[in-house]
Computed example of a mutant assay.
Amino acid sequence: MKSSPAIALALAAYASATPTYTSHKNAFNWPSTKQLIAFGDSYTFIQGTAGHPNYSFIGDALNPAFTPADLLVDRIVQNLTGTAEGGPNWVEFLTSCGVKPGLTSPRKCKKQLWDFAYAGANTIEDASFTPLHHDHTLALEKQVKQFVEYGDPALVSTHTVKKKSDVLVAFWIGINDINDLVKLRGRNATFAPLYERVQSRQFDLVKQVYDLGYRHFLFVNLPPLDRGPSPSVNASMVAEFNTILKTHADGFQKGQRDATVLQFDVNTVLNGVLDAYRAYGFKNVTGFCAAYNQPDIVTDPGKYGCSPLDTYFWYNSGHLTSRTHEIFTGELEKFLKGKSRG
């Protein structure tokens, strides 16, 4: 499906404002990237055979530790509940790893996918700020801690990651943060200082990953949550959150001139899709199939009075369908190729 000219122009403008400074020797090159390491929430989570069911690829807050062998025998599970989208999500489409139904070893993928995202995660673990959704939830703080203590040592000691310049590290977080903050404080609160706290902490965590030797980073901003089936936030809140994210990402780039800082404006892309949804094959962009979690929904949606799931933009009240992920990932791949050097 061809991308909208408006989307292409907006992405070009956004990309031009985020220069990178990595030396040519270790320059980012998406076609030659060997691994994608991902952190985030349910938009990025994938199910693993060693993960908490419906929440993670490996471990949880109650049992975060794992051995190198534990990580390497873990398998990506692809089925209706293997992601929060009813099918492959963006990290799977981007790497072509774990897209097919069944079990997939990340080590057998041309671009390996190592996913430390946790469904329901906020950035900060602080009961007075954004309480954990569950006692087993790994907030972004704990995801990075798990990676520093167990993930990176496992990938390096087994020679799975041979050159960190061949790795792209992705962060997509904030969906739970923005929703939980408004639910806890009401829509009339002053949110900018709260969003500042979220982003300051996120980039403290990014620096921890940078200090391990990783140099290529991808940040994805908030999608148009204000256009969801039952939004708790409005467009100005989302825009403010995204502006503060961009300010911190730009600042991180200036402070770490040997890093590649890539900022993908998924908000612009998905607003463009919503505005021209029929061109993308969608029939419903305001609601969702209430029977989305029924085991036979994919094979017999008519049984529940629904159209096929890939005709819906939203999978449920808070998540995008797998088809929506596939569409914006196509734009993301073009973006990454356009930013490649070497």
Results as ranks from 00 to 15, higher is better:
S105E: 02
V144I: 14
I124R: 06
A154T: 02
F93A: 10
V182N: 00
Y150H: 14
L113P: 09
F93N: 09
F191L: 06
K145V: 11
L113T: 05
R185E: 07
T123S: 14
T123Y: 06
V167C: 03
H136A: 11
P131G: 08
K162F: 05
P131E: 08
A154E: 06
L184W: 04
N188D: 15
N188P: 04
R185M: 01
G98F: 10
F129V: 05
G174N: 07
A117T: 04
V91C: 10
V144S: 13
R187D: 11
F171V: 03
G151T: 09
S165H: 03
F171Y: 08
D115P: 08
Y118E: 12
K108D: 15
R107Y: 06
A119C: 04
P106T: 02
N179I: 05
L132Y: 02
W172V: 09
H134M: 12
L132A: 13
D126E: 12
A121F: 03
T104E: 11
S96A: 15
W172L: 13
T95Y: 06
A121H: 05
S157Q: 12
R185L: 09
A127D: 15
L138T: 03
S128T: 14
S96T: 12
L155V: 08
K183R: 15
V144Q: 04
R187N: 12
G86I: 02
